[in-house]
Design a protein around this nucleic acid. Sequence first.
DNA 1: AGCACGCCGACT
DNA 2: GTCGGCGTGCTC
Length: 699
Amino acid sequence: MALPLPLPPMSYLPPLGGEGQEALGRRVAVPWRGEVRVGVVVGEGGRPSHALRHALAYLDGAPYLRPEEVLFLEEASRYLFAPLGQVLADFLPPSPELRHRVRLYPGADPKVLPKGLEALTAWQEARGFDPRLLDPLREAGVLEEEVAFKEGRRVLLPLKEAHPDPTLDRVLQALRSMGQAESQAALARAAGVGVGRVRRLLEEGYVGYGEPLASPPPGEPVEPLPLPERPERLNGGRFLERVRLLAGLVAEGDHLVLFPEVSLLERFLRHFPRARPYHGGLPPKEREALFRAPRGLVFATYGGLLLPFTPRSLVVVEEGSESYKLPSGSRAFVPPLAEMRARLLGVPLTYLSLVPAVEVLERPGLTFPVPRPRLLLVDLRRERGHPLTGRALALLKQVEEKGRQAVVLSPRLGYSALLLCADCGYRPNCPDCALPLRYHKEAKALLCHQCGHREPPPPLCPRCGSTLLEPRGPGLEWIQEELKRRLALPVYRYTKEEKDDLGPLLAGKPGVVVGTTALLRGPTLPELALVLLPYADGFLYEADFRAAERYHRLLWALTELRPGRRPLLALQTYTPDHPAHLALLEGSVEAFPWAEKALREALAYPPRVRMVKLEVAHRLEERALEAAFALREALKGVAGEEEVLGPAPAPIPRVKGQHVFHLLLKGSTERLAELLSRLDRRRFRLDPDPHRFVGLLED
DNA sequence: AGCACGCCGACT
DNA sequence: GTCGGCGTGCTC
């Protein structure tokens, strides 16, 4: 039985009265450290080395997971170097709440009840009793327990068309126009009548309780673009062409389509009336319902991988997206798991994306022609003007004159202005992280974007006393202000945290939006004519080997910000001849990934070998370094020179008051498992497929 | 993960 | 003498 906790499976005896029943894949309630928790049976039999406890109850009539899903969990656990329970925790939808009642077995002597538990001669809700008192009774076998999932939330639904009584009919029609009501009182309020009227309708059978309605799927279907053969990857094309290609791949029968994030899933969903969404944003009931009976065309985020059905095929959309990386738990990167799932189910898998990930390049596939981007490279080594060069301003002026729209993209808030001394080069740092503090003009404060540390800016340079201490670097706020100063256009802001109402823009009014990459997930601007990156290199200067691949993918994604038309993409950059730029000028989505792949081959980076990251962190640098070297030491004689990299300080060596060191291990899954088995897992955190090297791993 | 236990250095 | 951080073992 596996609990959704970072633990390997544990053994229990079947629930009393449940002996001999099929158990594999069923959910069970079990006593766990004094409380009751929900787990899934992942195996049967075995020879226990100690006395086992009884599970309390099966929670489902039929298995919740099939043997196929259990096998997948086992394989994924091996692949991710994570306990099976961790994988379960990552992929299982959250369990509904438990209703747990207890009493003393009717035959038992009430004298066994300790003080305070006398009430247990009758059924009682288990919560409210100290689990530490209940557990001994359970152990002694005198506690009768009843465990089941709580009844789901039920809503009021109309059952008939009309009611002869006009007053009651008004209430009925109110419910019909609402679709459903939370409660009798809610309906009465909405209809402006007393609850008595609603109760009458209920008694007469005109309304009744039922499951909440699923959200209605809108959608204008597209003409499918069928292919003679099913390729393993499909790239390029326009967005709508990829939608049509997908429609061709999943034309009939059961299919599972994975998306990196909900916003992209919904963009596709508009064209697939047949598709059912499955993701964390759905009401739990809806999600649960699909999990219990998955079929048809399912559009899902990563959790869809555990849906207990065998689709005809799997499609992974935008396999290179960073959003496939789970930030916590097993820290899995999803596409390889999708591949594993398809292999175990014996069904084909297709990657569908604009720019192929380096990892999938070698698969047989099709790349469709892409409209050549309109790219303008502004060389910051030659052009004057900061943060906006003369050329950039001229472009913005054009947008203004023509009454169009522009997007100005800043590389995260973290790159907002730095406070720099023009005399001595002094730059204030965060006392807890080894990061320069960012100057936030609106807040008139220096902020650490990593840990949130905040301090007032010094009036003079603390090092040389100069008055020339001022903000430098094109931060989002600075750019926003500069735009407001130079343009008559309204300026909007769009970040993950702060989303201005873009209503006027969506209605076609002119304006400029300043934002982060959150803009890629935002609404489509109908009159978008210009996309400007005032500091394109900011996206490139990140300390990991995938930074360039990400940047290239970002540029291509920007060319699709306004499907159907091609806004001008203007980049202010110190490296105009970067291969990613050349690839766009060439109009090739594949050229850069191929070059990148060759580079990775030469350096023995993924995908040639797997790489895992071990992270050691401590408040004291000495201790962190010591622990990191201890890991290296433990591998001495076991691992070869080329299999271990580091320890090295993390790109940002101090985060949240902790000094961070990394150790990288390279090799096959089996080899890595062997190396990791030599190490004490409590001494480090593991990332089984690192994509970024900045920051601390989350739990 | 979360908890108990024991060790050890630090400090009122 | 006590407190808190840290390593270790364990959960069925």
